[in-house]
Simulated scan of single mutants.
Amino acid sequence: MLVIRPDNVGDVVMAGPALRSLRRAAPRARLDLLATPAGAAAAALLPEVDGVLTASVSWQKTGGEDVPVTDDLDLVERIGWGGYEAAVILTSFSQAPWPAGNLCRLAGLPVRVGMSKEFGGAGLTHWVPSPPDETHQVDRALHMLERVGVPPVEGRLRVRVPAEAARTARRLLGGGPTGDRRVDGQTDGHEDGHADGHGRRPCALILPGASCSARRYPADRFAQVAGLLTAAGLRVLVAGTAREAPLVEATGAGVPGAVLLPGRFDVPVLAALIDAVDVVVCNNSGGAHLASALGTPVVVLFAGTEQVEQYRPRFGPASILTVPTACSPCRQFACPFAHDCLDIPPEQVAAEALRLTDECGGPWWRTPAGARDAR
Rank of each mutant, 00 (worst) to 15 (best):
M1A: 04
N8I: 09
V9T: 04
M14Y: 02
A25Y: 10
P27K: 14
P27R: 14
D32E: 03
P37K: 06
L45P: 00
L46E: 05
E48R: 06
V49F: 04
V49S: 08
D50V: 00
A55W: 12
S56W: 14
W59T: 12
V69D: 15
D72Y: 08
R78C: 02
G80E: 08
E85D: 15
S92R: 08
L106F: 09
G108K: 11
V111G: 09
R112Q: 02
G114L: 05
A122Y: 00
G123V: 03
H126C: 02
P131H: 08
D133I: 13
T135I: 12
H136F: 09
L142M: 07
L142Q: 04
H143F: 15
L145Q: 14
L145I: 09
G149P: 03
V150D: 08
V150I: 13
V161R: 01
E164A: 15
A166Q: 13
R167Y: 06
G174M: 13
G175R: 06
G175V: 04
D180S: 11
D180W: 10
D184G: 00
T187D: 06
D188C: 09
H194E: 13
G197T: 06
G197K: 04
P202E: 10
P202L: 11
C212P: 02
Q224W: 08
T230S: 03
T230M: 03
V238I: 12
A239R: 03
A239H: 00
G240D: 09
E249L: 12
A253S: 15
A253L: 11
G254S: 14
P256T: 10
L261Q: 05
P268A: 10
P268H: 07
V277Q: 14
N283I: 03
N283C: 02
V300T: 12
L301V: 00
F302S: 05
P313K: 03
F315M: 05
G316I: 04
P317E: 11
A318F: 11
S319G: 10
L321D: 00
V323P: 02
A326L: 13
C327W: 11
L342I: 08
D343T: 07
P345G: 09
E347I: 09
A350C: 09
A353E: 03
L354H: 00
R355F: 09
T357M: 12
D358M: 07
W364L: 08
R375Y: 10
